[in-house]
Protein backbone atom coordinates (compact mmCIF):
# COMPACT_ATOMS: atom_id res chain seq x y z
CA UNK A 1 0.00 0.00 0.00
CA UNK A 2 1.31 3.40 -0.96
CA UNK A 3 2.03 5.94 1.74
CA UNK A 4 1.74 3.45 4.66
CA UNK A 5 1.91 5.54 7.80
CA UNK A 6 0.68 8.65 6.07
CA UNK A 7 -2.44 6.80 4.96
CA UNK A 8 -3.17 5.66 8.51
CA UNK A 9 -2.64 9.23 9.69
CA UNK A 10 -4.91 10.56 6.96
CA UNK A 11 -7.69 8.18 7.92
CA UNK A 12 -7.34 9.07 11.62
CA UNK A 13 -7.51 12.73 10.65
CA UNK A 14 -10.67 12.13 8.62
CA UNK A 15 -12.22 10.49 11.70
CA UNK A 16 -11.34 13.64 13.67
CA UNK A 17 -12.93 15.77 10.95
CA UNK A 18 -16.10 13.68 10.86
CA UNK A 19 -16.48 13.17 14.61
CA UNK A 20 -18.93 16.04 15.24
CA UNK A 21 -20.72 15.52 11.95
CA UNK A 22 -21.50 11.88 12.71
CA UNK A 23 -22.96 12.81 16.10
CA UNK A 24 -25.43 15.18 14.48
CA UNK A 25 -27.75 12.56 12.94
CA UNK A 26 -27.11 10.19 15.87
CA UNK A 27 -28.59 12.61 18.37
CA UNK A 28 -31.22 13.82 15.93
CA UNK A 29 -32.72 10.32 15.88
CA UNK A 30 -32.00 9.61 19.57
CA UNK A 31 -35.00 9.19 21.80
CA UNK A 32 -33.75 11.30 24.72
CA UNK A 33 -32.94 14.90 25.55
CA UNK A 34 -29.51 14.31 27.08
CA UNK A 35 -26.59 14.58 24.67
CA UNK A 36 -24.64 11.58 25.92
CA UNK A 37 -24.03 7.92 25.29
CA UNK A 38 -25.48 5.37 25.47
CA UNK A 39 -28.19 6.27 22.97
CA UNK A 40 -31.74 5.78 24.12
CA UNK A 41 -33.45 4.39 21.03
CA UNK A 42 -34.67 5.52 17.63
CA UNK A 43 -37.24 8.26 17.13
CA UNK A 44 -38.29 10.73 14.47
CA UNK A 45 -40.26 12.88 16.92
CA UNK A 46 -37.69 15.72 16.78
CA UNK A 47 -38.16 16.06 13.05
CA UNK A 48 -41.92 16.06 13.53
CA UNK A 49 -41.55 18.71 16.21
CA UNK A 50 -39.69 21.00 13.77
CA UNK A 51 -42.78 21.30 11.62
CA UNK A 52 -44.68 22.96 14.48
CA UNK A 53 -42.26 25.74 15.49
CA UNK A 54 -43.45 29.03 14.03
CA UNK A 55 -40.37 31.03 15.02
CA UNK A 56 -38.16 28.54 13.22
CA UNK A 57 -40.12 28.88 10.00
CA UNK A 58 -39.83 32.66 10.18
CA UNK A 59 -36.09 32.43 10.75
CA UNK A 60 -35.69 29.96 7.93
CA UNK A 61 -37.59 32.15 5.46
CA UNK A 62 -35.64 35.18 6.60
CA UNK A 63 -32.35 33.34 6.13
CA UNK A 64 -33.29 32.05 2.70
CA UNK A 65 -34.27 35.57 1.63
CA UNK A 66 -31.01 37.02 2.95
CA UNK A 67 -28.95 34.23 1.40
CA UNK A 68 -30.62 34.61 -2.01
CA UNK A 69 -30.16 38.37 -2.19
CA UNK A 70 -26.61 38.10 -0.83
CA UNK A 71 -25.70 35.45 -3.39
CA UNK A 72 -27.17 37.45 -6.26
CA UNK A 73 -25.36 40.64 -5.22
CA UNK A 74 -22.06 38.87 -4.56
CA UNK A 75 -22.13 37.13 -7.92
CA UNK A 76 -22.87 40.40 -9.73
CA UNK A 77 -20.06 42.20 -7.94
CA UNK A 78 -17.88 39.13 -8.39
CA UNK A 79 -18.41 39.09 -12.17
CA UNK A 80 -17.41 42.75 -12.43
CA UNK A 81 -14.28 42.32 -10.34
CA UNK A 82 -13.22 38.95 -11.74
CA UNK A 83 -13.57 40.08 -15.33
CA UNK A 84 -11.81 43.35 -14.69
CA UNK A 85 -8.93 41.67 -12.91
CA UNK A 86 -8.41 38.89 -15.44
CA UNK A 87 -8.96 40.88 -18.60
CA UNK A 88 -7.86 44.45 -18.09
CA UNK A 89 -4.95 46.36 -16.71
CA UNK A 90 -5.86 49.44 -14.74
CA UNK A 91 -4.09 51.75 -12.33
CA UNK A 92 -3.83 50.60 -8.70
CA UNK A 93 -5.02 47.15 -9.73
CA UNK A 94 -3.18 45.26 -7.02
CA UNK A 95 -4.27 47.46 -4.08
CA UNK A 96 -7.86 47.58 -5.30
CA UNK A 97 -8.10 43.80 -5.74
CA UNK A 98 -6.35 43.38 -2.39
CA UNK A 99 -8.90 45.60 -0.66
CA UNK A 100 -11.75 43.66 -2.22
CA UNK A 101 -10.31 40.37 -0.99
CA UNK A 102 -9.60 41.67 2.55
CA UNK A 103 -12.91 40.50 4.07
CA UNK A 104 -11.75 36.96 3.34
CA UNK A 105 -9.21 37.18 6.16
CA UNK A 106 -10.61 39.95 8.33
CA UNK A 107 -12.04 38.59 11.58
CA UNK A 108 -15.78 38.54 11.05
CA UNK A 109 -16.40 40.27 14.34
CA UNK A 110 -14.54 43.30 13.02
CA UNK A 111 -16.76 43.40 9.94
CA UNK A 112 -19.77 43.00 12.21
CA UNK A 113 -18.92 45.75 14.70
CA UNK A 114 -17.81 48.23 12.08
CA UNK A 115 -21.03 47.86 10.15
CA UNK A 116 -22.96 48.05 13.40
CA UNK A 117 -21.24 51.29 14.34
CA UNK A 118 -22.01 52.85 10.98
CA UNK A 119 -25.60 51.69 10.73
CA UNK A 120 -26.68 52.40 14.28
CA UNK A 121 -24.46 55.20 15.50
CA UNK A 122 -23.57 57.10 12.34
CA UNK A 123 -26.52 56.63 10.00
CA UNK A 124 -29.05 55.93 12.74
CA UNK A 125 -30.85 53.35 10.61
CA UNK A 126 -32.84 50.44 12.02
CA UNK A 127 -31.25 46.98 11.82
CA UNK A 128 -32.99 44.70 9.35
CA UNK A 129 -32.50 41.90 6.89
CA UNK A 130 -30.83 44.46 4.61
CA UNK A 131 -28.08 45.28 7.08
CA UNK A 132 -27.32 41.57 7.30
CA UNK A 133 -27.32 41.35 3.50
CA UNK A 134 -24.84 44.23 3.32
CA UNK A 135 -22.47 42.45 5.70
CA UNK A 136 -22.88 39.05 4.08
CA UNK A 137 -22.29 40.45 0.61
CA UNK A 138 -19.04 41.92 1.89
CA UNK A 139 -17.72 38.54 3.03
CA UNK A 140 -19.21 36.48 0.19
CA UNK A 141 -17.92 38.62 -2.69
CA UNK A 142 -14.28 37.47 -2.28
CA UNK A 143 -15.41 33.85 -2.53
CA UNK A 144 -17.42 34.64 -5.64
CA UNK A 145 -14.40 36.44 -7.11
CA UNK A 146 -12.11 33.51 -6.35
CA UNK A 147 -14.39 31.04 -8.15
CA UNK A 148 -15.23 33.38 -11.02
CA UNK A 149 -11.62 34.45 -11.54
CA UNK A 150 -10.61 30.88 -12.22
CA UNK A 151 -13.54 30.61 -14.63
CA UNK A 152 -12.53 33.80 -16.43
CA UNK A 153 -8.85 32.92 -16.34
CA UNK A 154 -9.42 29.56 -17.99
CA UNK A 155 -11.01 31.47 -20.84
CA UNK A 156 -8.81 32.11 -23.86
CA UNK A 157 -8.88 35.83 -24.58
CA UNK A 158 -9.19 35.09 -28.28
CA UNK A 159 -12.74 33.74 -27.79
CA UNK A 160 -13.88 37.28 -27.20
CA UNK A 161 -11.73 38.69 -29.98
CA UNK A 162 -12.96 36.01 -32.37
CA UNK A 163 -16.57 36.94 -31.63
CA UNK A 164 -15.82 40.62 -32.24
CA UNK A 165 -13.91 39.72 -35.38
CA UNK A 166 -17.00 37.87 -36.59
CA UNK A 167 -19.10 40.98 -36.20
CA UNK A 168 -20.25 41.05 -32.57
CA UNK A 169 -20.13 44.21 -30.51
CA UNK A 170 -18.22 44.12 -27.22
CA UNK A 171 -21.43 43.63 -25.27
CA UNK A 172 -22.64 40.98 -27.75
CA UNK A 173 -19.40 39.06 -27.37
CA UNK A 174 -19.71 39.23 -23.59
CA UNK A 175 -23.35 38.13 -23.63
CA UNK A 176 -23.16 35.40 -26.27
CA UNK A 177 -19.71 33.97 -25.69
CA UNK A 178 -18.22 34.92 -22.33
CA UNK A 179 -21.30 34.55 -20.14
CA UNK A 180 -22.31 31.12 -21.48
CA UNK A 181 -18.74 29.93 -21.01
CA UNK A 182 -18.49 31.11 -17.41
CA UNK A 183 -22.09 30.25 -16.52
CA UNK A 184 -21.05 27.11 -14.63
CA UNK A 185 -18.78 29.32 -12.50
CA UNK A 186 -21.67 31.71 -11.94
CA UNK A 187 -23.96 28.93 -10.76
CA UNK A 188 -21.23 27.47 -8.55
CA UNK A 189 -20.36 30.80 -6.95
CA UNK A 190 -24.03 31.62 -6.39
CA UNK A 191 -24.53 28.35 -4.54
CA UNK A 192 -21.39 28.78 -2.46
CA UNK A 193 -22.35 32.33 -1.47
CA UNK A 194 -25.86 31.14 -0.66
CA UNK A 195 -24.50 28.44 1.63
CA UNK A 196 -22.01 30.76 3.36
CA UNK A 197 -24.69 33.36 4.02
CA UNK A 198 -27.12 30.74 5.27
CA UNK A 199 -24.58 29.51 7.81
CA UNK A 200 -23.06 32.83 8.89
CA UNK A 201 -23.65 33.68 12.52
CA UNK A 202 -21.58 36.56 13.92
CA UNK A 203 -22.49 39.25 11.40
CA UNK A 204 -26.12 38.21 11.51
CA UNK A 205 -25.97 38.20 15.32
CA UNK A 206 -24.82 41.80 15.38
CA UNK A 207 -26.78 43.19 12.47
CA UNK A 208 -30.06 41.35 12.50
CA UNK A 209 -33.20 43.27 13.39
CA UNK A 210 -36.34 41.91 15.00
CA UNK A 211 -36.37 38.92 12.61
CA UNK A 212 -33.55 36.50 13.50
CA UNK A 213 -31.77 34.46 10.89
CA UNK A 214 -31.60 30.71 11.22
CA UNK A 215 -28.18 30.59 12.94
CA UNK A 216 -29.24 33.37 15.34
CA UNK A 217 -32.37 31.39 16.12
CA UNK A 218 -30.31 28.24 16.71
CA UNK A 219 -27.95 30.18 18.97
CA UNK A 220 -30.92 31.18 21.10
CA UNK A 221 -32.07 27.56 21.32
CA UNK A 222 -28.71 26.16 22.39
CA UNK A 223 -29.24 27.57 25.91
CA UNK A 224 -32.23 25.32 26.52
CA UNK A 225 -31.31 21.63 26.89
CA UNK A 226 -34.82 20.49 26.04
CA UNK A 227 -34.68 22.27 22.69
CA UNK A 228 -31.39 20.68 21.67
CA UNK A 229 -32.67 17.47 20.05
CA UNK A 230 -34.89 19.49 17.73
CA UNK A 231 -31.89 21.65 16.86
CA UNK A 232 -29.94 18.47 16.04
CA UNK A 233 -32.75 17.40 13.73
CA UNK A 234 -32.69 20.83 12.12
CA UNK A 235 -28.90 20.62 11.76
CA UNK A 236 -29.21 17.24 10.08
CA UNK A 237 -31.68 18.60 7.56
CA UNK A 238 -29.43 21.59 6.90
CA UNK A 239 -26.44 19.33 6.36
CA UNK A 240 -28.37 17.29 3.83
CA UNK A 241 -29.51 20.46 2.09
CA UNK A 242 -25.93 21.83 2.03
CA UNK A 243 -24.62 18.60 0.55
CA UNK A 244 -27.24 18.66 -2.19
CA UNK A 245 -26.47 22.29 -3.01
CA UNK A 246 -22.75 21.55 -2.94
CA UNK A 247 -23.05 18.54 -5.21
CA UNK A 248 -24.99 20.64 -7.69
CA UNK A 249 -22.32 23.34 -7.47
CA UNK A 250 -19.56 20.77 -8.02
CA UNK A 251 -21.44 19.31 -10.96
CA UNK A 252 -21.63 22.73 -12.59
CA UNK A 253 -17.99 23.48 -11.88
CA UNK A 254 -16.92 20.25 -13.56
CA UNK A 255 -19.15 20.91 -16.49
CA UNK A 256 -17.50 24.29 -16.77
CA UNK A 257 -14.06 22.72 -16.75
CA UNK A 258 -15.09 20.23 -19.41
CA UNK A 259 -16.68 22.96 -21.47
CA UNK A 260 -13.58 25.04 -21.93
CA UNK A 261 -11.69 21.83 -22.58
CA UNK A 262 -9.53 21.95 -19.45
CA UNK A 263 -8.45 19.13 -17.16
CA UNK A 264 -10.05 18.65 -13.79
CA UNK A 265 -7.71 19.54 -10.98
CA UNK A 266 -9.60 18.93 -7.79
CA UNK A 267 -12.53 20.50 -6.01
CA UNK A 268 -13.58 23.97 -4.98
CA UNK A 269 -11.90 26.66 -2.95
Amino acid sequence: MRGGWLRIYAITYLVFLYLPVILLPLFAFNDGTVMAFPLKGFTTQWFVQLAGIEALHGALLNSVFIASVTAALSVLLGICAARASTRFRFPFKAPIMGAIMVPLVLPEIIVAVSLLVVVVQVLDLPLSAWTVIAGHTLICTPFAIAILSSAFQGLDQSFEEAAIDLGETRWGAFKNIILPLVSPGIVASFLICFTISLDEFIIAFFLTGAEPTLPVYIWGQLRFPTKIPAVMALGTLMLVASLIILSVAEYYRRRGVARVGGKDSGGFL
Partner: peptide
Protein backbone atom coordinates in the same frame (compact mmCIF):
# COMPACT_ATOMS: atom_id res chain seq x y z
CA UNK B 1 -13.41 51.51 -37.15
CA UNK B 2 -13.75 48.73 -34.56
CA UNK B 3 -12.77 45.14 -35.29
CA UNK B 4 -16.34 43.98 -35.77
CA UNK B 5 -16.93 46.54 -38.52
CA UNK B 6 -13.77 45.81 -40.54
CA UNK B 7 -13.84 43.67 -43.68
CA UNK B 8 -11.17 41.43 -42.18
CA UNK B 9 -11.47 38.11 -40.41
CA UNK B 10 -8.95 36.30 -38.34
CA UNK B 11 -7.81 32.75 -37.71
CA UNK B 12 -6.45 32.80 -34.18
CA UNK B 13 -3.36 31.00 -33.01
CA UNK B 14 -5.48 29.04 -30.52
CA UNK B 15 -8.26 28.87 -33.17
CA UNK B 16 -10.73 30.19 -30.54
CA UNK B 17 -13.40 27.68 -31.54
CA UNK B 18 -16.28 28.46 -29.17
CA UNK B 19 -16.39 25.34 -27.01
CA UNK B 20 -20.06 25.61 -26.08
Amino acid sequence: VPANKRPTNMVFQSYAIFPH
